[in-house]
Simulated scan of single mutants.
Amino acid sequence: MDEMDAANMEPMWPAAASAEYIDARIELGKAERRLRDQIEEVAALRRKLPQGTSLPDYTFAEGHRDLGRPEPTTTTNLSELFGEYETLVIYHLMFHPDDDEACPMCSLWVDGFHGVAHHIAQHVSFAVVGKAPLPKLRAWALRRGWHGLRILSSHDTSFNADLNVERAHGGQRPVISVFTKDGDGVRHFYSQPANFLDNDERGIDLLSPVWNLLDLLPSGRGDWYAANSYAGAQRAH
């Protein structure tokens, strides 16, 4: 990366900024550029993954696109979720069949996906799959305002267990997965849980604008944790 200095870069500070601030901001700018380059290097490594395993054509329960309509319930195969594309992204919603609400962090992520769904749809098929029975999933999606997203239930299937998005005792894991389809069927391409290999958190933070915005603050993100509702807040949906 070429060296940067105040004379050769577009300013990221007010005209009255101190020399001390400008010097520190330039050093930060260099680090931000290195981070961008590393993100691109990781993306390139991801694209070079060897061919993934072939998968069964799992069958999910799905309802009407209008979340307010309880009927009809249909069955949808994994291969059918691709639509016109050869690639499919699934967010595995952490929603145990016995729970009444989905994981707050998962709900935060899907809120974000919902907000940009019309952009995502220009490139790839996208769906949200949870282990809870379909009526619970749809009721939760309706409460969150996830209109237009495909919401499917993997209840009574081995999909979650086979993809390792479910622990041996039945606990659900927050994971995003990418699948491909060709003449030989559906293959797994990539999965990333919310935790890294060493079980440290923040594995999919880059997929949520919330965390990236909080990281801009003088106080940082702190130990804040998402909730399914906030006192005094009104939903925008």
Results as ranks from 00 to 15, higher is better:
M1Q: 09
D2F: 07
E3T: 13
M4C: 05
A6E: 15
A7E: 15
N8A: 10
M9T: 14
E10Q: 12
P11V: 03
M12K: 10
W13H: 06
P14G: 08
P14I: 02
A16N: 14
S18W: 02
Y21R: 10
D23K: 13
I26N: 07
E27C: 02
L28G: 03
K30N: 09
K30T: 10
R34W: 03
R34Q: 14
D37A: 12
I39Y: 09
E40D: 15
L45R: 15
K48V: 00
Q51V: 12
G52L: 04
S54D: 09
Y58H: 07
T59E: 14
A61Y: 08
A61N: 11
E62P: 00
G63F: 03
G63I: 04
G63C: 04
D66A: 07
G68V: 01
P72D: 07
T73L: 10
T75S: 14
T76I: 10
S79R: 07
S79M: 04
E80G: 14
E80P: 03
F82N: 06
E84Y: 03
E86C: 02
T87A: 11
T87G: 05
V89G: 00
V89K: 09
I90Y: 00
H92E: 12
F95T: 06
F95R: 03
F95Q: 06
C103S: 15
M105I: 05
L108W: 02
V110F: 02
G112N: 14
G112T: 05
F113G: 02
V116H: 00
H118N: 14
S125L: 00
F126G: 01
A127Y: 00
V129N: 02
V129C: 06
G130E: 08
A132E: 06
A132N: 05
P135S: 07
R138D: 07
R138H: 08
A139I: 01
W140T: 07
W140M: 07
R143Y: 12
R143K: 15
G145I: 00
W146Y: 06
I151W: 00
S158H: 10
F159D: 02
N160T: 06
L163Q: 12
V165Q: 03
V165C: 13
R167L: 13
A168H: 10
A168Q: 12
I176E: 02
V178F: 08
T180L: 06
G183W: 01
V186F: 01
S191P: 01
S191G: 14
Q192Y: 00
Q192M: 10
A194C: 11
F196A: 10
L197R: 11
N199T: 13
D200T: 13
D200Q: 12
E201F: 11
G203V: 01
P209N: 08
P209D: 04
W211T: 08
N212M: 11
N212C: 04
L213M: 11
D215L: 09
D215K: 13
D215N: 12
L216Y: 07
S219R: 09
S219V: 13
R221V: 04
D223Y: 07
W224Q: 08
Y225S: 11
A231Y: 09
A236K: 12
